[in-house]
């Protein structure tokens, strides 16, 4: 059973602000999603490997240095940058 508190907690962890009046509607939606997931949980999976990396193991790298990218390339997609650093601005 999903409670209002669960919704508040998920919102907090997701860094979302949810207005009080939307909590009930969200709770109902979330309950629906969880119920749907429950039908999956009830499926008979006896003997079925469902891990998407099942059967694979020990994929290792050797400890050999490969040249890194330039700082320009590293920062190319950064939303904000300064002095060769990624920049996280103070929230207004």
């Amino acid at each position: 059973m999903i409670t209002k508190e669960d919704i508040e907690n998920i919102a907090l962890l997701s860094k979302l602000f949810v207005p009080e009046e939307e909590l009930d509607a969200l709770r109902e939606d979330m309950q629906g999603i969880i119920d749907f997931a429950d039908t999956i949980n009830n499926a008979d999976i006896e003997g079925v490997e469902f891990d998407n990396i099942a059967g694979l193991s020990n994929q290792f790298r050797e400890d050999v240095v490969v040249e890194s990218l330039s700082v320009e390339e590293i920062l190319k997609n950064a939303p904000d940058q300064a002095q060769d650093h990624f920049l996280v601005r103070k929230r207004a």
Binding site: V64, S68, V71, I74, Q83, D84
Partner: peptide, 15 residues
């Protein structure tokens, strides 16, 4: 495979 060397200019040991 980036180096673990200590120090270095910022964001130069990255991929």
């Amino acid at each position: 495979s980036c180096t673990t060397e200590f120090g270095g200019d910022p964001n130069t040991h990255c991929c």
